[in-house]
């Protein structure tokens, strides 16, 4: 943010006839402009993050003074299954969720974007309808999907029944919980859909025409033209999607809490996502130090995963 201002200053310096007074003013204006952003960053992001880093090396219950324990939180989380019996379970749940939800969301988004892009009339209306799940309050999403997945009255089971598939107890069968949650996240793919749509609009019409002249059918055009041209978009959605999926919290929280349900993460901890586990330790089990350590383990993990993606996934359009 400071860059343009500094350049401006250089320009001023290059013209010796200007009064020096102006230089101070520019600097002042520059600082004034960046102050809100810098202050926000420092107070609400940097300071809490650094405090969390400090507390991750302490035993702290929010009430008594924090006592320094060094790396004990980290080693206990990773190796002590008496203190943290479900830590690795939460890692497993989160990885499973990410592996299913991210591809499912991206495919759903691409399909929706292609459909919206291909229709001539009412594209705005469909775009709006497909985007609605994103702006719906998470609590309402939870209520709606609990109802859709209901083993007795659920719409999902009724539809499956029409094609002869027996009804399932979706949110209460450990093996089905993650796919069921991933499906909800795919339903909420509106933002990815908009980004794909922008990517599709960015493909020059000439390329498509050239492909048609060369005799490429719709299928070939999709695989040979659209998919390669969308690669930067896909890469962006993959990286941001994986980061978001590894931090999934709101969805599991609303699905497995409320009206007498407890927040312990669904049947047999099958929906105990990493961040839900972290939240429970921070605010329910009074172990803020361990919760902070969990957040830094997650940070490191996300950094590694993201770096690997940058290294091994193709990013350029071709």
């Amino acid at each position: 943010m400071t860059a343009p201002v500094l350049e401006g200053r250089k320009e001023v310096a290059a013209r010796p006839r200007r009064r020096p007074r102006r230089r101070t003013n520019d600097r002042l204006v520059g600082w004034l402009l960046v102050t809100p952003a810098v202050a926000y960053f420092a107070v609400f992001l940097l300071y809490p993050a650094l405090s969390a880093l400090y507390y991750s090396f302490t035993d702290w219950n929010l009430r008594s003074a924090a006592s320094w324990v060094g790396l004990a939180n980290y080693s206990d989380l990773l190796f002590n299954d008496v203190k943290y019996p479900h830590f690795w379970k939460s890692v497993q749940v989160t990885l499973q969720y990410t592996l299913i939800a991210v591809p499912l969301t991206m495919v759903a988004a691409l399909v929706q974007a292609l459909l919206v892009n291909s229709i001539r009339r009412g594209a705005n209306l469909f775009r709006l309808l497909l985007f609605l799940p994103v702006v719906t309050a998470e609590a309402a999403v939870g209520a709606i999907w609990r109802w859709l997945y209901d083993p007795q009255y659920g719409l999902i089971n009724s539809v499956l029944g029409l094609v002869g598939i027996p009804g399932q107890n979706w949110l209460n069968t450990p093996e089905l919980v993650i796919p069921a949650l991933a499906f909800i996240s795919a339903w909420q793919c509106g933002i990815s859909m908009i980004i794909y749509l922008a990517g599709l609009k960015g493909i020059p019409g000439t390329i498509r025409e050239a492909a048609i002249i060369d005799g490429a059918g719709p299928w070939q055009r999709f695989w040979r033209v659209i998919v390669p041209m969308l690669r930067p978009t896909t890469f962006y959605l993959l990286v941001t999607g994986v980061i978001a999926a590894l931090q999934v919290f709101g969805l599991v929280y609303v699905i497995f809490s409320g009206s007498g349900r407890s927040v312990t993460g669904g049947p047999e901890q099958s929906g105990l996502s990493y961040v839900l586990h972290l939240y429970l330790f921070a605010f329910r089990y009074d172990a803020m130090g361990a919760a902070c350590a969990m957040s830094f383990i997650l940070l490191i993990f996300i950094m590694i995963i993201t770096a690997l993606q940058f290294r091994f996934v193709k990013q350029e359009a071709s």
């Binding site: 109802w147 209901d150 083993p151 007795q152 009255y153 107890n169 949110l171 209460n172």
Partner: peptide
């Protein structure tokens, strides 16, 4: 459970 897991059984 298939019955009681329903909403407000």
């Amino acid at each position: 459970r298939k019955i009681t897991d329903s909403d407000k059984p």
